[in-house]
Simulated assay, not measured.
Amino acid sequence: MNSQQNEHPSVVVVTGASAGIGRSAAVEIARRGSGVIATYHSRPEGAEETVALIEELGGRAHALRLDVGDTATFPAFHDAVRDLLASEWGADSIDALVNNAGFGGGRSFEEMTEEAFDDYYRVLLRGPYFLTRSLLPLLAPGGAILSVSSSSVRPGDTEPGYSGYAGMKAGLITASRFLARELGERGIRVNTIAPGPTRTRLGGDAFEKYPEIIAPLAAKTVLGRIGEPEDIGRVIAFLVSPEAAWITGQDIQVSGGYAL
Rank of each mutant, 00 (worst) to 15 (best):
L97C: 01
L183W: 15
G69S: 01
I236H: 04
I236F: 15
T50A: 04
V14I: 07
R199F: 00
V98E: 06
A237Q: 08
R189F: 04
A244K: 00
G105N: 11
A63K: 11
G184M: 05
P9S: 07
R133G: 09
L138K: 09
V190D: 02
P155K: 11
E88Y: 04
S255E: 10
G249Y: 08
L66C: 01
A91E: 12
M168G: 03
A80L: 00
F74R: 01
V11C: 08
T174V: 13
G204A: 11
E243R: 05
R186W: 15
G33N: 11
V190L: 10
V123M: 07
V27S: 12
G257D: 07
S241H: 09
Y165L: 02
P44Q: 09
G22I: 02
I21Q: 00
E230Q: 08
A47G: 11
T198W: 10
L183D: 08
E88D: 09
V81I: 14
A140R: 15
I252S: 09
G102W: 01
R189I: 01
E159H: 12
L64W: 06
G35R: 03
T158I: 13
Y120I: 01
A96K: 05
I21H: 00
Q253V: 05
I226N: 04
A26Y: 07
F103H: 03
T132A: 11
Y210D: 13
A47Y: 07
P128W: 03
A19Y: 11
L223H: 06
L223Y: 12
L183I: 08
